[in-house]
Nucleic acid binder design. Structure first.
Lengths: 330, 330
DNA sequence: CTGAAAGCGCTAACAT
DNA sequence: ATGTTAGCGCTTTCAG
């Protein structure tokens, strides 16, 4: 970590011009027909003194920062934290770094952050869109900044995205609950949210229920709700449900709390998303597990492709979920 | 997000030189005695067209990137994810952005990443040091790059750091377990690790045990251990412990798993760190909660101070923990 | 009070 | 096959 070496230092030491060094460094030695001897000598010297080009100057010149902006709802949320972890790993493999922020559900903050990242000449965006982000994302696309959404997408903007197969997962989970012939009343607890992942989970549930010619029971909840204890109780007990599908792990945990505090017995149930708790709880909890690693992998793969070649076609990737059957649904 | 406006565009439109615009933009209008009329006209125009200076050019010139490097053990770990969340928030308030990576426990990767971040002219580093990172951190300090450690520190390098008061927290927790006069055998489960946070937790435990003139029972575990079920069982049941302190939440969860799988009853216990599970578990779990928000706040505060004024004295901040007494310890 | 111009470190078209 | 040179967009010294 001695003082920074410049390309000019290399050139001087090697008795060649800066250009030659630059070409060699950027793998254009062949193309520019630099002699192999010179090339190797430069490479060896560069290695020896540990020269690293100044990224800033490089970026200023080339317009590429090798920086990806990651905007998630909340990096403190284990799901997003895990995606972030794998995204970073994948990005690193491709020589990119990640600059992140949590946008909560604040559209203004999201817009501001996108602006700020844009000013930093981020090479691409990875975003979990908040509800009213369409105009901003549309602008990004018009500005030709490679952008990819995940977890959910925007119905009114054509973009790249990677999402889980929420519809099928919810459908399969509901089917699983219906395999037990005693289960006549199977409910869904979801969020007040128009986001696609919630919508798809609900539709998957609905389809399975419809196919069995049963009545659907759907309860939506606001997570900030003080009343969720009562709501859970009334929904589950009041309807005498035989089984419930929860569309997020938070909802499941919230229901477990309610059952404890309001002292009612949980029916059979399944939760979306994994949680450390689920294996351990008594009974262990059946869950719909998203393939986080694959999601991260696809995100970076598609995004990098978009960055490296303009006018790639839009990619929309749907990653299957896995139903992990445990005791709570049996 | 129209096409980027340059400072020269502003200058041309205003009929002044680039210099003048630059001065005004950088708040040096007064100092350079630019007429108020011109200043205001420029400011108004800049506002109107939404001009934002190119950060890259600015950085190349000034050497400041307004980027902070965050190197944590594992961003997927809820503790670090939460710290990361608050760090980002605090950084944002101060006009900084965060570029992160997980370094696992891989010293080489850590070194490489630090190198890479250094090449990006990161303004400062926030690091959870892995065991053999001392040489690298020392180099960073010699290179005058503002650096601050957290969660644990290095005993052989004098650095800024922010850590929890692990010693006192462990001491208090152990004391709490000893308040019950039936608790004669109080054990500690910790990790094979020389990191300061683990050492301090052990010392706090030891001191409390010593003060009561009791025997200490300490079990260290490797987390990758397949045998942890047996080890937990043998340690807790074999020693007929009355109570246990776990020095990480992972260890607690691992013990709960063991108790389930090996079918033994957990004695009274306390866990370091919070976890969603802890409130909910039966019995609810007493835990030592680190003040993550305060840790993040201090980290950024100290680091920014170091960045803005060279030769600030080294700061070492110790943040108190809170013992959240729940059912498992009563 | 304001402007011209040098230069941050690098890339790449254009010479030679 | 290699070197000269003009920028990338901005800050800041030095002149006026």
């Amino acid at each position: 970590m001695k003082k920074r070496i410049l390309i000019s230092d290399i050139a001087r030491a090697m008795g060649v011009s800066i250009t030659t060094v630059s070409f060699v460094l950027n793998g254009k030695a062949e193309e520019k027909r630099i002699s192999e001897e010179v090339t190797n000598r430069i490479l060896a010297y560069v290695e020896k003194v540990g020269y690293k080009p100044n990224q800033l100057a490089k970026s200023l010149r080339s317009g590429e920062t090798k920086l990806l902006g990651l905007l998630v709802e909340d990096i403190g949320n284990p799901f997003f934290a895990n995606v972030a972890k794998h995204i970073e790993k994948e990005a690193y493999k491709n020589d990119y770094h990640i600059i992140y922020c949590s946008i909560a559900n604040d559209d203004n903050r999201a817009k501001e952050l996108i602006d700020l990242f844009y000013d930093r000449h981020i090479d691409g965006f990875i975003i979990t869109p908040t509800d009213n982000l369409s105009p901003t994302v549309r602008m990004l696309i018009q500005s030709k900044i490679p952008t990819i959404l995940f977890d959910r997408y925007l119905t009114d903007v054509e973009t790249n995205y990677v999402v889980s197969d929420n519809f099928k997962a919810a459908y399969d989970a509901t089917k699983h609950l219906l395999e037990n012939k005693n289960h006549q009343k199977v409910g869904l607890v979801s969020l007040y949210s128009n986001q696609t992942q919630m919508r798809d989970r609900m539709e998957g549930y609905r389809k399975a229920i419809d196919e069995s010619r049963l009545q659907n029971f759907i309860q939506k909840i606001s997570l900030d709700e003080d009343m969720s204890n009562d709501i859970m109780h009334d929904f589950i007990v009041g309807n005498q449900l035989d089984a419930v599908l929860f569309s997020t792990n938070y909802l499941t945990i919230s229901a477990l709390k309610s059952s404890k505090e309001k002292n009612f017995t949980m029916p059979k149930f399944i939760s979306f998303d994994e949680h450390t708790l689920f294996n351990l709880y008594e009974p262990s909890i059946t869950s719909i597990s998203q393939n986080i690693k694959e999601i991260a992998h696809q995100l970076i793969k598609v995004l990098i492709k978009q960055i490296s070649s303009k006018d790639e076609p839009i990619r929309q990737v749907v990653v299957p979920c896995e139903l992990k059957i445990r005791a709570s649904s049996l």
